[in-house]
Design a binder for these strands. Structure first.
Lengths: 133, 133
DNA sequence: ATGAATGATACCATTGAGGTATCATTCGTC
DNA sequence: GACGAATGATACCTCAATGGTATCATTCAT
């Protein structure tokens, strides 16, 4: 079980890199060359980041992406949500009807507690905090 | 992202049920009839629990499984490990070589902290504690 | 005009999860 | 002893998600 998938992982690496260069323009070719993040894959990833408002894009020669948000405003928890869906560890896996069952609800409650702890910790992690670390 | 997958979820439900009936014999047909846990699936699941020492099995007519461990000794964290592999949220997703990179290691460190918190909480959760809840 | 970049989208391959099926074996019951 | 119900072992199947690639159109600096 991994908290991050590969897309999120790459996105974080790329954003840390860009934050270090801000406000410079960075193209997916740069990312491929400098961080060895596969270009076709990052193109897709960056389009998502752009639509989400983290980046602006410039087309054409010398185009690329510019970091829009400030590093301390980019939270890891939001990136996870963006690429993997909201952090939720306790979605019930059983047929809805039976989940009313008194016996099994404590299970969800425990998991919910863990989720809450994880989330509150995650919310404090930003691109900026990762750069300092 | 779910902390438990369906197999683990079903196993927990079944074990709670068995603990309530202990030391009675329970067959996968019973589980299907009483909890609506699909029999073929539970057969596979229970073989794993048996090999892990949680259950003993009786073959033949009137056969089934008997809960071997006491409910307060069956920890959720161990069931997760059994069916999903050890809880580890921060396996590196990048090519090993580059993971030495100073910049990205803080990411792993944060995730490791979350993992540690989650694990310490999880370790306290047992079949017995879930029955009380 | 050309080349390098993104926008949009479709496509592909691999893997894992969830679930089923089969055959052999065991054992209680008639 | 025959039969039925159960497990032991194992192979198989299907589907969705993930990771990754390819293509064509468009934009823009030179």
């Amino acid at each position: 079980m991994n908290l991050l998938n590969r897309t999120t992982d790459y996105a974080v690496r790329a954003l840390i890199y860009m934050a270090g260069k801000a406000p410079a323009r960075v193209s997916t070719s740069d990312l491929d060359r400098e961080l060895h993040l596969p270009r076709p894959f990052m193109r897709k990833t960056f389009q998502i980041l752009q639509k989400a408002g983290y980046l602006t894009s410039l087309k054409g020669k010398n185009g690329g992406f510019i970091l829009q948000a400030s590093a301390d405003k980019i939270r890891l928890v939001d990136l996870i949500a963006l690429f993997q869906g909201p952090v939720s560890m306790g979605d019930c896996l059983f047929k809805k009807k039976l989940c009313e069952c008194v016996r099994t609800c404590p299970l969800r409650r425990e998991i919910k507690q863990i989720e809450t702890m994880a989330l509150s910790h995650l919310r404090g992690v930003t691109i900026a905090s990762l750069m300092k670390g």
